[in-house]
């Protein structure tokens, strides 16, 4: 009896969470151009996506930014995790670094976005890289990705057995050899999970991109948001469905990777 109520709430909450995604997917294969009445099945809107210059450009921007930022953030974030975890820093340093690394995790996105806008407005005087646009978008995505990569890799590092490393020291392995042949293979699952997390975060980010993007650097979430303001089109449904599918696949892959750790 009580178990039934629990089950009822559990199933309804799942339905509520998935309903919006489902709605977008259903309408993406609806023939009706205007209005929301069901007029039959079609894949026409998906085909139209490939004819829409703006959508193609947004997709290109999103993927380009996600790939570049993931590479940069994974390298910097992994190095940062190693530097923080593999050395004994004085206590105050440790504490300060922890605060700095955790800013993107605890502070709301909108504040991070505003802080980045502020930073770019000053740095713009030094270099045109910091003009709002694709380069600035890449820099700002890397900023929040570093933290998440570091978090994941640090977790992996902390769970490692220190004896393997000490064994390598005993065998007179050089520091670099030790890193390349012992530490790196051991933390690799963590690094990969961090990279996938970074990729998804970049592809998915709306708030920070919304503040930083320029007219030439529209990404998919921004395109969808602004097309909502201009009026709904069936192409938006198809595009949103593809984006949902991409994130679901990525999330499931990352999930499997972290479970294997």
């Amino acid at each position: 009896m009580k178990a039934r109520i629990l089950a009822l709430v559990a199933y309804s909450s799942l339905i509520l969470m998935y309903l919006p995604c489902l709605a977008v997917a259903v309408f993406s294969v609806n023939k009706a151009r205007f209005g929301l009445n069901w007029k039959g099945f079609t894949l026409n809107w998906y085909q139209r996506l490939f004819e829409n210059e703006a959508i193609l450009e947004a997709t290109y921007n999103s993927l380009l930014v996600a790939v570049i930022t993931t590479v940069i953030a994974t390298v910097i974030g992994t190095a940062l995790a190693l530097g923080l975890e593999r050395a004994t820093w004085p206590k105050p340093c440790q504490r300060l670094f922890d605060v700095i690394v955790n800013i993107p995790v605890v502070v709301p996105d909108i504040i991070m976005a505003v802080a980045l806008v502020l930073a770019f407005s000053v740095l713009r005087h030094l270099s045109s890289v910091f003009e709002l646009g694709l380069a600035a978008l890449i820099i700002s995505h890397v900023t929040f990705q570093i933290s998440f990569v570091t978090l994941v890799v640090r977790g992996r590092l902390a769970s490692l057995n220190p004896e393997t490393r000490e064994a390598a020291w005993d065998l007179f392995a050089t520091r670099f050899y030790n890193f390349r042949r012992v530490t790196l293979p051991l933390i690799m699952p963590g690094v990969l999970a961090g990279a996938m997390l970074a990729f998804t975060l970049s592809l998915d980010d709306f708030i920070i991109s919304f503040f930083i993007h320029g007219p030439e650097s529209v990404t998919l979430p921004i395109y969808i948001f602004s097309s909502l303001k201009r009026g709904l089109t069936p192409e938006t449904n198809a595009l949103s469905t593809l984006m949902l599918l991409a994130t679901v696949i990525l999330a499931l892959l990352a999930e499997r990777l972290t479970r294997k750790l």
Partner: peptide, 27 residues
Amino acid sequence: KPKIGLATWLAAGPGLLWLTLLLAIPC
């Protein structure tokens, strides 16, 4: 755990610098 040498700074430095310049100071 090794002492904080050049290698440690080289590893942690870029990340810390990046986050400090673009996030901590702007905040």
